[in-house]
Amino acid sequence: MGLLDMFTKASRGERHRGRFDADAQYLANWVHSHVGVEAYVEPQTTVTPMTVVLIANDGEWTRRAVGGERGARRLGEDLGIPVYDVRKTGYPQRMRDHDARQKILRKRAREA
């Protein structure tokens, strides 16, 4: 690819598609290595694209862009997990509990 090719529409689309493919593969691996995973679609902001947060039964979570709402819905169908709109449902309590536990563990590790 030449220097000017980096700025063409086609090459940008190919780079984005590659990124979304890598993100989708990461999320698929994450789902298969965790129990009770649910997906929560987050709206696009001025800073970030639409993303999906996967949350396991224990509250552990991960976030990635998946190519819009259709990409998130397709991800849920492909992986057999429920997909929720975070604007309607909010985040589950187990996610907040997990973050609180991690904060305590990090604090203990610094003090040790």
Results as ranks from 00 to 15, higher is better:
Val53Met: 04
His32Gly: 15
Tyr91His: 11
Gly13Leu: 14
Arg70Lys: 10
Arg74Phe: 08
Tyr40Asn: 04
Leu54Lys: 00
Asn57Thr: 15
Val37Trp: 02
Val53Asp: 04
Arg19Asp: 12
Asp23Leu: 12
Gly68Pro: 05
Leu105Cys: 03
Gly71Ala: 05
Ala72Met: 01
Thr62Ala: 07
Val37Leu: 06
Arg87Gly: 04
Arg106Phe: 13
His32Phe: 04
Trp30Asn: 03
Lys88Thr: 14
Ala56Asp: 13
Arg94Tyr: 08
Thr51Lys: 12
Val31Pro: 01
Arg73Ile: 15
Tyr84Gln: 08
Thr46Phe: 08
Arg15Cys: 00
Ala24Val: 09
Ala10Asp: 15
Tyr26Cys: 02
Ala72Tyr: 04
Gly67Pro: 07
Thr45Phe: 13
Met1Trp: 12
Gly68Asp: 04
Thr51Ser: 11
Ala24Phe: 04
Val37Asn: 01
His32Cys: 10
Trp61Glu: 07
Arg70Ile: 15
Arg101Gln: 13
Val83His: 01
Asp5Val: 08
Lys103Glu: 12
Arg101His: 11
Gly90Asp: 10
Glu14Thr: 12
Gly67Glu: 02
Glu38Lys: 06
Arg70Gln: 09
Tyr84Leu: 05
Glu77Arg: 02
His34Ile: 08
Gly36Gln: 03
Val47Arg: 06
Trp30Leu: 05
His98Asn: 03
Asn29Ser: 07
